[in-house]
Design a protein around this nucleic acid. Sequence first.
RNA 1: GGUCCCAUAGUUCAAGGGAUAGAAUAGAAGUUUCCUAAACUUUAGAUACAGGUUCGAGUCCUGUUGGGACCA
Length: 635
Amino acid sequence: MEQEIKELILSNSVDLFGQQIDEQLIQFQKTRKDIEGDLTLVIFPFVKLLKCSPQDAGNRIGELIVDKLIDIDRFAVVGGFLNLTISDQYWLNQLKRIHAEPTFGCSEPNSKPLMMVEYASPNTNKPLHLGHLRNIFLGYSVAEILKANGHKVIKTQIINDRGIHICKSMLAWEKFSPINEKGERETPENTGLKGDKLVGKYYVEFDKHFNQEAKEIILQWEQGSFDGFPVAICDEFQRLTLAKSGKDEKTCEGIDAKIKDLAKNQTSLLLEAKEMLIKWEARDPQVYLLWSTMNSWVYAGFEATYDMMGVDFDHLYYESDTFLLGKDIIMDGLNRGVFFKKADGSVWIDLTAEGLDEKLVLRSDGTAVYMTQDIGTAVDRLTDYPDVSGVIYTVGNEQDYHFKVLFLILEKMGYSWAKNCSHLSYGMVDLPSGRMKSREGTVVDADDLMADVIAEATEMTKERGHIEGMSDEEKNHLFRQIGLGGLKYYLLKVDPKKRMLFNPEESIELNGHTGPFIQYAHARIQSLLAKAGVTEGSTLEFNPSDLEPSERDVLKWLTEFPAHMNEAASDLSPAVLANYTYELVKAYNHFYQSVSIMIETNEDKKRMRLVLSANVAKVIRQSMRLLGIEVPNRM
RNA sequence: GGUCCCAUAGUUCAAGGGAUAGAAUAGAAGUUUCCUAAACUUUAGAUACAGGUUCGAGUCCUGUUGGGACCA
């Protein structure tokens, strides 16, 4: 409709305005709720051209539109706004069109280029937490939205499975795990712990002993005993200690932190971990076996969590496979003058011309930094999937700078696909008490949280749900759908770019702007359709003479679904769909409350209302599916 | 020290430069003789501050304050 009006104005613009006008001047918006009309054209941009009042300009354009377009019943100019009222027949035809399209709102599958979406990308030492939930739900949903918009999509993640931190948990397990009567150390099997939790436990264990040892070293140093430590370290300690005298509290704290780092580097635990890393890099069979065993525990644990979340991946990348990549590319870039070498042998890129600074891409000892690896991984992926047209990295916004630099480097290296790479940057999830901190034990564990919301959903559903006659299996499935639906909706309804607050009590809320609110509407429609003896695809003829305001309103929202799908895809924002669906459901609930369906005596109206309801259900289901949320038929 | 991000009802979120800034929640008051009341209806309450650009600014620009992140 907007397109038709636009074309009409453009093709008549010489008559109307005496000149060809810019398409940009034609701006539409939805008519305000309290004013008559469906569609509003903003008149202000034309006023200058016409050299007349907005009122006259609106009238002239309005007359043309009503004259030429049969579906526009009438118009009214209010202020600088031309409000157009669209005919009931137009809306009814829209409903028929929507009803005939089982995949309304979606584009032809695989009709658009291949995109790669990276998300999750955990560290194997730490169980998944609330921050990962936002990341994972977001990445999964964006991938699904792109698919529904016609893209081919590969979901991927890179697993951070190597490095000194991994050796820490391996070492801690070897040193501190108790041995049972069978002579075994702790395993997921003999403890019943999830693998990721067990390994995470030993990572924490390492840290505890590590800090303790560092503390003891400092104590020893303070007592003047430096036996067995390098002279340089002892000198540094004394220099730092002296520097503290006479300084304010804050400066002293900073110096104490430096002293602690100094001591940490001298701990036997860290030295052993470093030794282990060297052995791992040399593929020492014993270390390698331990590493792969503990990793397999973690993967089994993650797998269980992903399964509960209802997300999946098409291709996994492991840092242990990719960490050596990138160095050759850096050397190549160095030869081509993209990078430069500093006196100490480290390799840098100069981005000052782009308003950034100089960035390290390879250390002086030739070891890789994150940037080196990311360059390597990106190129590697393009080798695996030559037809990828772009990569979307779902990573927190604390890495904004990193990705800006990464994409710039790729561009400077001459990769044509670099311009299609984008960072799906999302804000941190805060708790009412502030940021999650592992040291303060405020990290919200992903498994625990999911179990909590499901438990809450179980209780609430038993209290007020319609679950008579369901088997236990069906009930449990429903509790999970509601609990996780609420959690996912809670995390996805907020604009991803923004930092958000996670309030544990609100996340399990069932009233208001929530997932269960939307699920409930769907269940209610399904119940209605079942009672009426129709299915969503039923072909029902209808041609009522007029539409109620609430019916028009629902139809308007329904018609807008494709536009919001597009917006969600181009903005990479599931929140767009979440908020749209909420508005649709609100309009539907209002309609449901204000008109009767089953006892309507006018069969045309009754059939139309059933079809309308069926299509609202269809759109709810489609839209929620893209958010990874299942909608039950009963609840 | 440098760069980037954020600031809207008590609280959590909306608002492609366009009309009287929407919701939800907490608060107050209502609606089940008919389709699921996890619903609906009514009610009260907000653009951090100071300038600027514009016919028009929550939205764009500059500065201030407050919060956060990153780089060294």
